[in-house]
């Protein structure tokens, strides 16, 4: 089981959290100005990174706050946890086996 460091509550088991998908996908400021292709890209396309992934988690069975994490999607190791509004921590500067070069 994964363990996550909730920025509000500390280290807890994965079973207390729910996964919220890729982080920092900005909602278009002018949706009406988008082409169908751009709207589809916003709605459906995901980076689905093999490597370090910025993602959202909800501490569903805890403080019920959303926060962000960086996780290696191959080893599942977390390298950072941060709150909404925090400065973005850097992605680790190492390669992940099997990831696109």
């Amino acid at each position: 089981m994964l363990q996550l460091q909730c920025p509000f509550c500390g280290l807890r088991d994965e079973s207390e959290f729910s996964f919220g998908g890729e982080a920092h996908i900005a909602r278009p400021l002018e949706p009406d100005a988008l082409s169908d292709e751009e709207w589809a890209d916003y709605l459906f396309n995901r980076s689905n990174v093999k490597g370090f992934h910025r993602e959202m988690w909800l501490h569903a069975a805890g403080c019920r706050q959303w926060f962000y994490a960086i996780r290696n999607t191959v080893s599942y190791e977390f390298t950072a946890f941060y709150r909404v509004g925090d400065p973005l921590p850097d992605l680790p500067n190492r390669s992940v086996p099997g990831a696109a070069k």
Partner: peptide
């Protein structure tokens, strides 16, 4: 498993 992943294994939950 709810999270994205490429490791061919999952969680105990």
């Amino acid at each position: 498993d709810s999270y994205n992943g490429y490791g061919q294994r999952g969680s105990f939950t």
